[in-house]
Simulated scan of single mutants.
Amino acid sequence: MENQHTLYRPPRARGPKIAVIGGGHGLSNMLRGLKQYTENLTAIVTVADDGGGSGALRSDLRMPPPGDIRNCLEALANTEPLMAELLHYRFSEGVLAGQSFGNLFLAALNGISPSFDAAVSRMSEVLAITGRVLPVTNA
């Protein structure tokens, strides 16, 4: 006999449309959970981080800090475990000490894209993310 009290869960493609606004690790953790219930996610992410590797890229390359954006892209990514490990990798020596490969990847895409939001869109395609990630601003 089947359990008659099982809750019906619609397919993720028809799940609720959810927009979240914020930054930091809390937003990316929340997106990891929401991704299990719906594909209709939009994360509007702040670009105010000025510490660590993000702060260095912000001042050196005159671009929005990529850290919080990268964390959200990673949370929504549908990639192989090796790619996730690569994006999380932090250099431990030399001029890149403390910098994450994911931040550098997004910085490189920013260098070959017409705008920061175009770079984020391109990284979204590479990582086959669920939903959308939008920076609050390009500057």
Rank of each mutant, 00 (worst) to 15 (best):
Glu2Cys: 09
Gln4Lys: 04
Gln4Arg: 12
Gln4Tyr: 14
His5Val: 08
His5Pro: 13
Leu7Glu: 09
Arg12Cys: 03
Arg14Trp: 15
Pro16Ile: 06
Pro16Ala: 11
Ala19Tyr: 10
Gly23Cys: 15
Gly23Ile: 14
Gly26Ser: 14
Ser28Ile: 02
Met30Trp: 03
Arg32His: 11
Gly33Pro: 02
Glu39Pro: 01
Glu39Asn: 06
Glu39Gly: 00
Ala43Thr: 04
Ile44Leu: 09
Ile44Tyr: 13
Val47Asp: 10
Val47Cys: 07
Ala48Gly: 14
Asp49Arg: 03
Asp49Met: 14
Gly51Phe: 08
Gly52Leu: 13
Gly53Thr: 02
Ser54His: 12
Arg58Lys: 14
Arg58Leu: 06
Ser59Gln: 12
Leu61Asp: 09
Met63Asp: 01
Pro64Val: 01
Pro65Ile: 03
Gly67Ala: 07
Asp68Gln: 11
Asp68Phe: 10
Asn71Thr: 12
Cys72Ser: 02
Glu74Leu: 06
Glu74His: 00
Ala75Ile: 09
Asn78Gln: 10
Asn78Pro: 00
Glu80Met: 13
Pro81Trp: 04
Glu85Ser: 13
Glu85Asn: 12
Leu86Arg: 08
Leu87His: 10
His88Ser: 02
His88Cys: 00
Arg90Leu: 07
Phe91Leu: 12
Ser92Gln: 15
Ser92Leu: 14
Gly94Ala: 07
Val95Asp: 12
Leu96Val: 09
Leu96His: 06
Gln99Phe: 11
Phe101Cys: 11
Phe101Val: 08
Phe105Met: 08
Ala107Ile: 07
Asn110Pro: 01
Asn110Gln: 15
Ile112Asp: 03
Ile112Pro: 00
Ile112Glu: 13
Pro114Phe: 14
Ser115Phe: 15
Phe116Leu: 01
Phe116Ala: 00
Asp117Ile: 12
Asp117Gly: 05
Ala118Cys: 08
Ala119Met: 11
Val120Glu: 03
Val120Leu: 11
Arg122Glu: 02
Glu125Ala: 15
Val126Cys: 04
Leu127Asp: 01
Ala128Thr: 07
Gly131Thr: 06
Arg132Leu: 04
Arg132Ser: 04
Val133Thr: 00
Asn138His: 05
Asn138Ile: 14
Ala139Tyr: 08
Ala139His: 12
